[in-house]
């Protein structure tokens, strides 16, 4: 592990679950590493793979998409599309040389503040072990 290396995570969080879960982590004062930068989206289904790719290009060491659990999407079916899209895009990124550990799609409900904080902690830790990304 590189001394002092702080990985950077971009988190695309859906407004209703992922973002609300992160808010709950805050109101519950559950601490986690300060490595994540959150971009609020209405639905995980809003996340265009282009945004994920651009995040990596702009220096993100890891990208997280957090949406409602399948079956609980605020927009009824948005996250089912998220699941399909990134089930395909994730291995494609890996195929292009972006380690699979660097990308995560997770389901975090509005009541899962603890899960969110654990997620950020474990993701940060894993990325720190992996070290910085190679530049394009």
């Amino acid at each position: 592990m590189i001394e002092g290396y702080q990985p950077k995570i971009i988190g695309f969080l859906c407004n209703w679950c992922g973002y609300a879960g992160a808010d709950l982590a805050g109101t519950s004062r559950i601490t986690y590493p300060a490595n994540i930068r959150v971009i609020r989206v209405p639905c995980s289904g809003r996340v265009d793979p282009l945004l994920v790719l651009k995040s990596f290009q702009r220096g993100a060491d890891g990208v997280l998409i957090a949406g409602c659990h399948p079956g609980e999407c605020h927009y009824v079916e948005g996250n089912y599309y998220t699941r399909r899209r990134f089930a395909l895009f994730h291995p494609f990124l890996e195929y292009l040389g972006i380690e699979k550990e660097r990308f995560r799609v997770e389901w975090v409900s509005a009541s899962e503040g603890k899960k969110f904080s654990k997620l950020v902690s474990s993701f940060t830790e894993e990325l720190a072990k992996l070290g910085p990304r190679r530049e394009a």
Binding site: H69, P70, G71, E77, Y80, Y81, R83, R84, R85, A87, L88, V105, W107
Partner: peptide, 16 residues
């Protein structure tokens, strides 16, 4: 096309 549809019950290697 597969990205314009879905199946509720599929998991596609992701956890619930």
């Amino acid at each position: 096309p597969p990205l314009a549809t879905f199946k509720k019950e599929e998991r596609l290697g992701m956890s619930e």
